[in-house]
Nucleic acid binder design. Sequence first.
DNA 1: GCGATCAGAT
DNA 2: CACATCTGATCGC
Length: 690
Amino acid sequence: MSRFGGRLREYPALSIDRFDRDNLRARAYFLSHCHKDHMKGLRASALKRRLEGSLKVKLYCSPVTKELLLTNWKYKFWENHIVALEVETPTQISLVDETSGEKEDIEVTLLPAGHCPGSVMFLFQGENGTVLYTGDFRLAKGEAARMELLHSGTRVKDIQSVYLDTTFCDPKFYHIPSREECLNGILELVRSWTSLSRYHVVWLNCKAAYGYEYLFINLSEELGIKVHVNKLDMFRNMPEILCHVTTDRHTQIHACRHPRDDDCFRGNRLPCGMTCQNGTPLRIISIKPSTMWFGERIKKTNVIVRTGESTYRACFSFHSSFSEIKDFLRHICPVNVYPNVLPVGGTEDKVMELLQPLCRSYRRNQEPRYKPLGTLKRVHKRDLSDTDEDDLFDTELTSARPKISKQQREESGPSETTQPENAEGNVKESTDSYKESNDDDDDDDDDEEDKEDTEKNTAQVLPQESDATSTEPKADVPRWDTFFKCDRLDESSENEDNFPSSAGAGGSQSLFSDSDGVSDSTHISSQNSSQSTHISEQGSQGWGSQGWDSQMDTVLITSQERNAAEFSCFSRTGSRMIPVPHEAAKESQADNSSWKAPGQNRSGASDVICDLKSKDLEKEAEAGTAHVQEVLVETPDASRAPDLELKRDSQSSSDFEIPLTPDAELPQPDKLYCLYKKLAAGESIVRKPS
DNA sequence: GCGATCAGAT
DNA sequence: CACATCTGATCGC
């Protein structure tokens, strides 16, 4: 949760994601995304009063954020004070103090943050240097290196400070499976279950917050089943989302909520009240998206864990992992970094200790002779070369996509050497171009908040003249650029970038160690006929709820240790089987909307699917083993303590064992074989209600 | 009665 | 487990 106070040391006249206390006097406001912990004070009467006194006070955000915000009547009073800025469109803002007339110009650029719909980072450039406020973000490795507007020419801009989302800034969160992996795991689980019969439904136990939409979209697109939600009017102007959610409860995927929804579930009732259809009781499983992380030495990524008879947890993260954070910061290499969040159980000191080595202020002190700006790399290059740890999960880098900035803008802040890129920009220590610009490393600036008493200020947006792409924000036309934005063009050769890092590690690295003290030597030995993800129903009577505890099994979908070569195409037979955000993006774009993913789908390439697969095969070939993308494993081990953590990491294999519908018939082996075959081929299995 | 804050639950 | 939010209790205005 953000504990950012709202102000940047460099530009204290701005308030970002905080709207109380001193922020009441800001000359301009910024909202990175529509999560409550970033909206503190946004509807307070004090601020409301200020707005009433001036039409000049503005709140800047992405078009999607504006739309989401204004859907909530509590924020309606902002309506005439919100300025939606297109992402990746540098905009000049004039900050005027209404009393003194004092004026300050600043340029702001919204960069996609991959956290939730509309989420952005803010890049400010002005007299006091270039500053990046990340808001909350999830960006895959290499993502920063691909953001044009973080660069000037082929070099990263000279960034004075980064205000960073440090939610998972702790080595214990070293690795979090990529968004693709997680989506895949969930997709296959949902597919397996919902294809058993029309009475088999899935409840996605999502929190009340934006950020799951891409999951809904992908499930709906892949399975042709809309997702039931409580409300969808906030999406009324977002057809890309709207068409995949529904308020009709008669669907097999639910993400509806109820204050007592866990009770509902226990009573075999969906939060919306549905419990049966046509007199036939529903068969409900719940999938709870939650963050799963893996320590540095753990290479497995089990993205689905069975936690009960019919409950699952699925890996899902809105925030970057530790290694992703490091990659991000290392690329930017700012002079200073300031954490916006204290990780659970962490302290500011600890976080700083971890992050400062990636900053210039620290490096200059520690290694004066060593010019570490070599971390800067060409936009289209990935640089993983400098971290051994990272290599654990990531594979080779790929070059590619000679990307030319369409808007090669000069830094307005401290000048930046626009020197010819060094050809192999991914070398870690190119000594050149170490800009010793502003070095007021002020760590001693904790409270100068009250410095300015700019009582009334104004801000005005001026389209930036020099920038061809800057446009007047079209406040009325919400667009999707802000969520999951990525340049998906011509990146085919770069796919591995976002290819699930874990997958890369999959075959080739087989050392298992457990940094978390978790047993790790798990191998998937599910060589059974059903190598692929599947669910089978089995008599529930067999093990009553009381039996579950002792037999609770871990069901895993892993993308790391895959077996069953012959099923390597499982779930991706078609041209588009893998539910990846960019897929969605691509399609949305096709129909006019842009739903791009920054972070995870970095692969953003249009050919992700194929590439994922071929990549997979490639790896497998390397490793001399064939794997399947996901294998659902279950470990029926009555002797094991029901320790989820342990279970999660100690995968063993077996099949799902899910209680059988009372009046359903147990499928015969041959029938089952057929079923699996169809599943493997990606065909839908239609059944007549029994 | 409203809002801010905290503890607790989900 | 760890994402963000809501609820209820308490306190101050």
